[in-house]
Design a protein around this nucleic acid. Structure first.
Length: 339
DNA sequence: CAACCATAACTGCGACTCTC
DNA sequence: GAGAGTCGCAGTTATGGTTG
């Protein structure tokens, strides 16, 4: 459906966040949360319009490591038609030039003319320059809502967000304002700031969960909650009164991954946190997160992170110490196990 | 740690039902 | 009748436990 139609079909707006190694999880989370909130808060009159479809991509796809060591799964840029991108945010490590290749630069050049907003954050700003492109922002041409975006920008400063991340967030709010209205954008800005970083650790799936149907959202929540135990697809399907076949199909369609993959990622994320935050042995962490045994945990870590759990623990603790994040109390010692 | 194997999960396809 | 949603079957693939 192209512009001018008066039908009530939902208009999907593809928002793409292009990630580079060392990106800020907090910046990504704020952007993701902006559009996720907009989906949840949009005015009832707009209920069938302007539905943001958040995509996380990288040059080649796969796992991208954030500055805090958390791995985020991405699709390759190739899998997204450049002309379908409504807004593009490129996130790289602060003050570190990102690596790019001609394929990525070409995709950026094709995307730029179609996207309403193109913003680079941190080192990713340079990739736009390499492609011979400039940042785009709807706020530049939009004179009707200056107060809101100015207010949001000052709020980002209050919340301790650096300048270009604040500008990207302001751009995101401008997009929401133009697509969903001033009220919705205002409410998003209000709900978003100030925020705490831990809100964003789950935003990868949260954005999709938020716009999933009630049944699938409920199911995803139940899977997340019961991820420490053995989870059967048959039981999960039965819990939401669906056939297994239909449950699998709809879950993947709405959340983006199969239920098994969803539970696996939740478990791995918990295991990563426990490895860094506690001194528990890998085998115990595996049992507590539902990943079975230490052997199985090691196998999964090698498969997904290309290292063993203990290597990950050492690496992440060193990284946090180097970044000055391992303040007293951040790395907690586990309670002595009760035997 | 690798290999093996039973089981569970996933997917493609055709058929059925329901609504418009 | 067309299209969307759902279901069941069968074949393939992935997972996880066990063994050496």
């Amino acid at each position: 459906m192209v512009g001018g139609s008066v039908g009530l079909a939902r208009r999907r707006r593809q928002v793409v966040i292009l990630l580079f190694e060392g990106f800020s999880l907090i910046h990504m989370g704020r952007l993701a949360e902006t559009f996720s909130l907009a989906n949840r808060l949009r005015h009832p009159d707009n209920a069938l319009h302007n539905y943001y479809d958040l995509r996380l991509v990288s040059a080649s796809g796969g796992a991208i490591r954030s500055s805090s060591g958390v791995l985020i799964w991405t699709d390759a840029v190739d899998s997204h038609y450049a002309k379908d991108v409504h807004a593009l945010f490129a996130l790289g490590a602060a003050n570190v030039p990102v690596e790019s290749d001609e394929r990525l630069l070409s995709w950026l050049r094709h995307t730029h003319p179609h996207a309403q907003v193109v913003q680079g954050i941190g080192g990713a700003y340079g990739v736009l320059e390499l492609a011979g492109l400039e940042s785009k922002d709807v706020a530049v041409t939009d004179t009707t809502g200056g107060a809101m975006t100015t207010g949001a920008l000052s709020a980002t400063r209050t919340a301790g967000i650096d300048a270009d991340a604040g500008a990207a967030l302001t751009s995101a709010l401008s997009v929401v304002k133009r697509d969903c209205g001033y009220e919705t954008a205002s409410q998003v800005a209000h709900d978003l700031l100030p925020v705490t970083p831990k809100q964003f650790t789950h935003s990868v799936f949260n954005s999709r969960e938020a716009r999933a149907s009630d049944l699938i959202r409920t199911s995803a929540h139940q899977l997340r909650v019961s991820s420490e135990n053995r989870v059967s697809i048959a039981d999960a399907a039965q819990a939401v009164a669906m056939s297994e076949r239909n449950f699998l199909r709809r879950f993947k369609q709405e959340i983006g991954v199969t239920p098994t993959e969803f539970v696996l990622r939740v478990r791995l994320e918990k295991a990563c946190h426990m490895l860094v935050d506690t001194d528990l042995p890998a085998d115990k962490i595996a049992r507590r997160t539902g990943l079975g045994s230490g052997d199985r945990l090691a196998k999964l870590f090698r498969q997904h992170l290309s290292m063993s759990p203990t290597e990950y623990r050492t690496l992440e603790r060193n990284r946090l110490a180097e970044n000055g994040l391992a303040e007293p109390g951040v790395i907690k010692r586990a309670r002595r196990p009760v035997s």
